Computed example of a mutant assay.
Amino acid sequence: MIVFRVPPTAVERVGFSYSPTLEAVLSLHVLVEPKHHPVQHEWVRAMRRLSPALKREIDVFAFAYRAYFPEFFFPSAAGELLDFEGELRRLRSIDPELARLEFATPSIGPSDAVVAALLLDDPGALLERFLTLLEDYWEEAFAREWERIEPDLAASVSEAGRQIESDGLYALLRGLWPEVRCDAEQGRFWLDRPHDHEVQIGADDRLLLAPSTYVWPHVRVNCDAPWPLGLIFPASSIVREARPRIPPAQLVSVLRALADDTRLRALRLIAERPRTTQELAPLVGVTEAALSKQLRALADAGLLDRRREGYYVLYRLVPEQIEALAPSLGSFLSPAED
Rank of each mutant, 00 (worst) to 15 (best):
residue 255 L to A: 09
residue 336 A to Q: 14
residue 175 G to P: 07
residue 157 V to K: 01
residue 145 E to T: 12
residue 150 E to L: 06
residue 108 I to L: 14
residue 226 P to H: 03
residue 188 R to D: 01
residue 143 A to K: 15
residue 240 R to I: 10
residue 286 V to L: 03
residue 224 D to I: 12
residue 243 R to T: 15
residue 284 V to Q: 06
residue 192 D to F: 12
residue 302 G to Q: 04
residue 273 R to A: 15
residue 335 P to Q: 11
residue 289 A to R: 14
residue 220 R to A: 13
residue 80 E to H: 00
residue 190 W to A: 06
residue 177 W to H: 12
residue 191 L to H: 04
residue 247 P to Y: 05
residue 327 P to K: 13
residue 93 S to C: 06
residue 137 Y to Q: 03
residue 77 A to P: 06
residue 324 A to Q: 09
residue 92 R to H: 08
residue 275 R to D: 00
residue 124 G to N: 06
residue 223 C to G: 15
residue 152 D to M: 08
residue 72 F to M: 06
residue 272 E to H: 13
residue 268 R to N: 10
residue 222 N to R: 07
residue 169 L to M: 04
residue 110 P to D: 05
residue 303 L to Y: 04
residue 299 A to N: 07
residue 299 A to P: 00
residue 142 F to W: 12
residue 172 L to G: 02
residue 40 Q to R: 12
residue 267 L to Q: 03
residue 304 L to P: 00
residue 91 L to E: 00
residue 100 R to W: 07
residue 292 S to G: 15
residue 43 W to E: 11
residue 337 E to Y: 12
residue 60 V to D: 11
residue 96 P to W: 08
residue 157 V to S: 02
residue 280 L to R: 08
residue 225 A to P: 11
residue 120 L to N: 08
residue 198 E to R: 15
residue 98 L to K: 12
residue 32 V to S: 02
residue 123 P to K: 10
residue 283 L to Q: 14
residue 68 Y to C: 10
residue 219 V to P: 02
residue 176 L to W: 13
residue 50 L to A: 08
residue 268 R to F: 11
residue 45 R to D: 14
residue 139 E to T: 15
residue 89 R to F: 05
residue 64 A to L: 07
residue 179 E to S: 09
residue 10 A to C: 05
residue 54 L to T: 07
residue 293 K to R: 15
residue 248 P to Q: 03
residue 24 A to H: 05
residue 201 I to W: 05
residue 167 D to G: 06
residue 278 Q to W: 10
residue 123 P to C: 14
residue 146 W to H: 08
residue 102 E to N: 13
residue 233 F to R: 04
residue 203 A to H: 14
residue 81 L to M: 09
residue 57 E to R: 11
residue 249 A to E: 14
residue 50 L to T: 10
residue 57 E to Q: 09
residue 184 A to C: 06
residue 161 G to D: 07
residue 187 G to T: 10
residue 250 Q to H: 09
residue 18 Y to R: 02
residue 203 A to T: 15
residue 13 R to G: 13
residue 332 F to C: 03
residue 284 V to R: 07
residue 194 P to K: 10
residue 73 F to L: 02
